[in-house]
């Protein structure tokens, strides 16, 4: 399965350019814990080596929380070194390759694996495991982020929300969410407005409180400069399905089309009938509450006025 999000594999670093993230050969040092609170969901990573834990604490800095005796994690993941050199075959023949990740649901567990990791978590429970390879192709910190992305998508769906393949900006306390297939301009839109608070350049957590839908920041990145600038959640002003065009225009979508467009941009969970139904229910509720529009735009900041006018109309 080729992922919908815009993550390309890194170039192999030149020798000596950076220290390795973890050494699977010394498993006795894999004993550190990191707890992340992401948009109301809590993930505990156990069994990390010290250097990897430090690296993740920096990468996910806005989402790291201290342990306490009261709050239970939505998912506890036991991390361990893999006993194999890799999982999915990585062979580019000199060509750039878009990231691949496989998943499978089996006996109440979601199994996920890519080039340098393999793991599982209980869909309805709170336990999981993750094996990491020592790899330059997919460094352990990237492996953990990609596994967490899948886990978060499922846990968010079980909690009534969903992980949305979209970028988001906050203006005047309201979130403007931009979505569409890879290459539609999600990341570019956020770069056109660098002075606005960026929720994320690649994915956003959608939640609901009563009749109000919120867009929340998550730590998963679409590019090295991306990721969340804020860990909070903001009421959604509108959802904008991006279509690159020479003309700038906004067209409101009917409920069915809006729901279909939204569901197309919800990764992982829609791959099972049960997950798809949950996504449909949430997407329909949002399509009936939040303006969902097709935004025809060119890669310049001029579209924002058209967008605001459409929301007022």
């Amino acid at each position: 399965m080729t992922l919908p999000f815009e993550t390309n594999l890194p170039e192999k670093p030149p020798p000596g350019s950076s220290p390795p993230e973890a050494s699977p050969s010394d498993s006795s040092s894999w004993n550190r814990t990191l707890i992340l609170s992401i948009s109301g969901l809590r993930f505990e990573l156990q069994g990390l080596p010290s250097e990897l834990r430090s690296r993740l604490a920096v990468r996910f800095s806005r989402f790291v929380v201290e342990p306490d005796s009261v709050t239970r994690a939505n998912l506890t993941i036991r991390v361990r070194p893999a006993v194999v050199r890799g999982y999915l075959d990585y062979d580019t023949h000199g060509q750039a390759k878009v990231y691949e990740l496989e998943t499978r649901v089996e006996e109440g567990r979601l199994h996920a694996w890519s080039y340098a990791f393999s793991g599982w978590f209980e869909i309805d429970g709170d336990q999981g495991e993750l094996s990491l390879c020592d790899s330059d192709v997919e460094p352990p910190s990237h492996s953990i982020e990609n596994f967490l992305r899948v886990a978060f998508a499922w846990k968010a769906s079980k909690a009534g929300g969903f992980l949305f393949h979209a970028s988001g900006l906050v203006r005047d306390g309201r979130a403007y969410v931009f979505f569409g297939p890879s290459g539609s301009g999600k990341t570019t839109v956020t770069r056109l407005y660098p002075h606005e608070l960026q929720l994320n350049d690649d994915c956003i957590h959608i939640t609901r409180a009563g009749s109000v839908f919120y867009a929340g920041g998550v730590p998963f990145k679409g590019c090295p400069e991306g990721g969340a600038q804020d860990a909070g959640a903001f009421p959604i002003a509108g959802l904008f399905r991006l279509v690159q065009s020479r003309n700038v225009a906004c067209e409101r979508l009917g409920a069915a089309e809006a729901m279909a467009e939204i569901a197309t941009s919800v990764p992982f969970v829609s791959e099972t009938p049960e997950g798809a139904l949950r996504v449909f229910e949430a997407a329909e509720a949002m399509a009936r509450t939040v303006p969902v529009m097709k935004l025809y735009f060119e890669l310049a900041p001029s579209f924002w006025d058209v967008m605001e006018e459409s929301l007022r109309g």
């Binding site: 009917g254 069915a256 729901m259 829609s270 791959e271 099972t272 139904l277």
Partner: peptide, 13 residues
């Protein structure tokens, strides 16, 4: 399947 405003929206997992 989910029917919205008399239109069926169908996902094939």
């Amino acid at each position: 399947t989910r029917v919205v405003d008399a239109q069926a929206v169908i996902a094939l997992a």
